[in-house]
Design a protein around this nucleic acid. Sequence first.
DNA 1: TCGCCGATCGGCT
DNA 2: GCCGATCGGCGAA
Length: 193
Amino acid sequence: MNPINESFYQKPTLELAKSFLGMLLVHEAEDGITAGWIVETEAYIGPEDRAAHSFNNRRTKRTEVMFGKAGYVYTYVMHTHCLVNIVSGEVGHPEAVLIRAIEPYIGLEKMYERRGFDKKEQQLTNGPGKLTKAMAITQELYGHPIFQNPLYLVEGNVPKTIESGPRIGIGNSGEAREYPWRFWISENQFISR
DNA sequence: TCGCCGATCGGCT
DNA sequence: GCCGATCGGCGAA
């Protein structure tokens, strides 16, 4: 399992968000390895995107990494959950792709241990906050290069059919609410909704 | 410093 | 479907 090269991330954000589908996300955490196929993503293309944290070129300690090179991890905390993104676009263009759901592949036992043994397999990773907990992805990984240990992507299978639609949970974002920038693998059991 | 708000989740109706 | 938990980031003062 070799990490995908840094050059892979040098493509337009919408294209990148689609190309992630079917690829394997791997985390070699200290307490165990987990991995899963990416089945759902969302693109955030600031500064024009009202739903993006980088809207209006808002540059803060939190959004700083999005202004840098593609292929680095942007994590942030939402309520009590950590959400994971991969920075995209050219330097100075604050864009990123949110990983919304994965299909468990390696380390299922570890995922149950972290999420609770009462969960059904389908509930382990079918949401952006759930998959980070199952894979032990935390704020420590902010700024991590996604083409290196311990968190990286591996080549996978190209999905049969991809669908797209409006993004989830961004109700107060004007026109941006309608942009079909959410992508998922058709009929996959692990998408968030 | 304070107050508001959210790219969520899980439990309850 | 609806709602409350819960907490860091951000802007206002």
